[in-house]
Amino acid sequence: MITRILSRLLQAIPTLAGVAVLVFVLVRVVPGDPVAMMIPPGADADVVARLYAQYGLDKPILTQFVIWAGQALHGDFGMSISLRQGVTGLIFSRLPATLELVAFAATLAVLLGGALAVFGTRYAGRAGEAVVDGLTGFILSVPDFLWGLAFIVGFGVLLPLFPISGRNDPSYSLGLASDFILTESFLRLRWGVTADILAHMTMPAVALALPLAAMIARVLKSSLAEQMAQDYALLSRVKGFSRWHVIVAEALRNAAIPTVSLTGVQVTFLVGGTVLIEKIFSYPGIGSLAIDAVVNRDLPLIQGLILTFAVLFILINLLLDFSYALLDPRLRHG
């Protein structure tokens, strides 16, 4: 098991190196100039030249890359041009917000998708199944950012149930040690703060979760149908268990295995989805940071953020791989 984890981590190194090279070259080849974004039009050519030199942009791409990669290996991803702060510190201060949002959204998606699939399976061939199918089809046909905008209009403005922006109520100071404010406030039993943070997270998280939930519901429902046709499910009903029991206690775990492999990839789209959703809800995570970085042509920040996303994708896929062994005893001794 440990050797498998290590070998997977080793495999990740060339992937990350490839991503680094690709991003480094891409952001320099596409039109757009970070220095032009900083200074008013018609500025002195001397000032421009000095700024280029200051950020090392006057050197050839290869030299720039060697310098950047050398520093990156020491954990230093340079200075953000637009925010004038270290990229590493900036990312680490905003990453917890995104991780908590993604974790909350993924949990919601699994719960909602699972509930829909179980309900649709219980009422297979009846009206209940048709409702589930219609609902998942509708949810899937609307992208996450549209759900976000719809929620702002619906539950932020017309029926103001939830705050529409930010991560917490700014009117009081949190006084927390880490940036994982949801987790920390919960562990410190300051549940008033936790509730406030959850209220802020609800709309962006639901917007992110809905398409994933619908995808999970579809895949899980069809693999549940497959499992319910197996003899063990029939036998369990002969033993005297209710349909609900057979679905939840017998079939669900076996149906989860193909569902994890088919929808697991979608979780990485969830991370990608944070970029737009965080911007819409002014949520201070790395997604909204990424949009600002792109708008300002902040090359070091873009590079650092994309590598962060790449690491997240790799870690999520690794976790998914190992969850199979947890679900399927046949894979444990292999």
């Binding site: 197996q230 063990y232 036998l235 369990s236 017998e250 775990r253 076996n254 399927d328 005893p329 046949r330």
Partner: peptide, 8 residues
């Protein structure tokens, strides 16, 4: 084979 639940 299919009458026993593989995960229990």
């Amino acid at each position: 084979l299919s009458a026993l639940n593989p995960s229990r």
